[in-house]
């Protein structure tokens, strides 16, 4: 039987996954400090003319906005989780209403 996961735990888990995933993708694609790229240029030389020419090929490289966006999203989810956290019942001293 499935246990019902409380919303604040779900949001905290999502926040952690987003932060780890975003930073992880950025690190895995080379920790590029510029903007995200979906292609890169490799220079080759034409032997007859001596011209250096670009050959563009598809390659995803996550830019610096990637971990920042992931951490920003994770922070929002964490705030949401904190707001949804069930408050503990306060048991006052004996005799108080």
């Amino acid at each position: 039987m499935l246990r019902r996961v409380s919303p604040h735990l779900l949001l905290r888990s999502l926040a952690a996954a987003l932060a780890i995933g975003g930073v992880g993708v950025w690190l895995a694609t080379g920790a590029h400090r510029g903007w995200t790229r979906t292609s890169e240029v490799e220079m080759r030389r034409d032997e007859v003319t001596g011209i250096d020419y670009p050959v563009r090929r598809d390659k995803f490289t996550a830019g610096i906005e990637f971990p920042f966006a992931a951490l920003g999203g994770a922070a929002l989810l964490a705030i949401g989780a904190a707001l949804l956290r069930p408050r503990e019942r306060s048991s006052g001293p004996a005799g108080t209403p």
Binding site: R33, G34, W35, V41, D46, T49, I51, Y53, P54, R56, I64
Partner: peptide, 23 residues
């Protein structure tokens, strides 16, 4: 037809230079 002829351009920008090509 070989796509060797090219122009490359570069503009300075704070985070990184914007570079591109035209063929």
């Amino acid at each position: 037809p070989k796509g060797v002829n090219n122009v490359q351009f570069k503009l300075d920008a704070p985070l990184e230079s914007i570079t591109g090509t035209g063929t």
